[in-house]
Write a protein that binds this DNA or RNA. Structure first.
Length: 312
DNA sequence: CATTCGTGAAGACGAAT
DNA sequence: ATTCGATTTCACGAATG
């Protein structure tokens, strides 16, 4: 509901109707110009007349039918993909009359603005652009893209950028966002579209994930089961049996490759239920080698106390 | 004959100094 | 930034059905 059209039309001593385009500075009367970022500033005194309008762009969409993972989904209400949400600092006019001082004043203001704009905003803008570019190249959904933008913003706010290339941070942010969203897009593909080496991305990613304390839960093997099972044309019984296996052997899976673990469970479940599937096919669809599938599947069989060859 | 199994060397990853 | 421990992967040959 709320059409937030609360216009500031309250003409306090308002002269007459002001045109949409031309605004005059209430202090010095000069006509204001528009800066690069869409603000309207007085060219003489540097007063910001109209700040950048707040755009609440895309709404924040609920992610998926996920469990109570909502707590890690802390997004900002306004879209984070845009730079400069409207918080600016400007040097206001003191009372200076002499044109000499005024000129110094202007220069100072310019320097200040430039320093701020170029120091942080420009890199941020560039990083956001990189995030967008890589995201579309990889087909990353919007939710994860926004998460990446949030991560980049936080990194910049915490002054984590100095000494590090923005591209690396942007790449790491995309990677982290993908992992948080449970998207299989992994390091190699990101390194492909990024301009930095994979080593730097991983290093930056580690650094970020520690400094920012961003939680990347180790992928739950159960997540992979439906995809694997359906891609192998296995029955739903196998699928649910695989999930059972994963739950019962939850202890020994830590530290191992989750995908391989899921694949092994599917394979074991299929074998227990008498459905024919080769290890190689399982390894194909679960992105794990045959031998790893084999190892995990043996682990699970042993942990369950069943012998791999007993058919029901 | 196909599938599965076991092993050792090589690379990759994460943690710690 | 490098070193270390664990894990995964690859490549081979053997065993099993």
């Amino acid at each position: 509901m709320g059409e937030t059209e609360t216009d500031d039309e309250d003409g306090s001593g308002g002269t007459e109707t002001e045109s949409e385009d031309v605004l005059v500075c209430p202090e010095c009367g000069a006509e204001a110009v528009e800066s690069e970022r869409g603000e309207t500033v007085c060219p003489d005194c540097g007063l910001v007349i109209e700040e950048e309008r707040v755009e609440r762009g895309k709404e924040w969409r609920a992610y998926s039918s996920e469990e109570e993972e909502e707590k890690s989904r802390v997004g900002a209400p306004t879209t984070q993909t845009m730079h400069e949400k409207g918080l600016t600092t400007e040097i206001s006019r003191g009372d200076v009359e002499k044109s000499e001082r005024r000129e110094t004043m202007r220069r100072l203001r310019k320097w200040h603005e430039r320093a701020r704009a170029e120091g942080t905003e420009r890199t941020l803008r560039f990083g956001l652009g990189e995030i967008d570019r890589m995201s579309s190249a990889l087909g990353v959904p919007d939710g994860a893209r926004e998460s990446a933008a949030v991560i980049l913003r936080r990194a910049q706010k915490d002054e984590l950028l100095p000494g590090r290339s923005v591209e690396a941070v942007a790449s790491a942010a995309v990677y982290a966002a993908c992992r948080q969203a449970g998207i299989p897009r992994s390091l190699d593909e990101i390194a492909d579209v990024s301009r930095v080496e994979k080593d730097e991305i991983t290093g930056t990613y580690r650094y970020l994930s520690r400094q920012l304390g961003l939680e990347v839960p180790p992928a739950d093997p159960v997540e992979f089961v439906p995809r694997i099972a359906s891609e192998l044309d296995l029955s739903p019984e196998v699928e649910s049996r695989a999930v059972e296996i994963l739950e019962e052997t939850a202890g020994i899976g830590v530290g191992k490759s989750p995908k391989a673990y899921a694949g092994a469970a599917v394979y074991l479940a299929a074998r227990l239920l008498g459905e024919e599937v080769t290890q190689e096919k399982v390894s194909d669809v679960s992105d794990a080698s045959v031998v790893t599938i084999r190892n995990r599947y043996h682990d699970q069989a042993e942990a369950l106390g069943v012998d791999p060859d007993l058919d029901t």
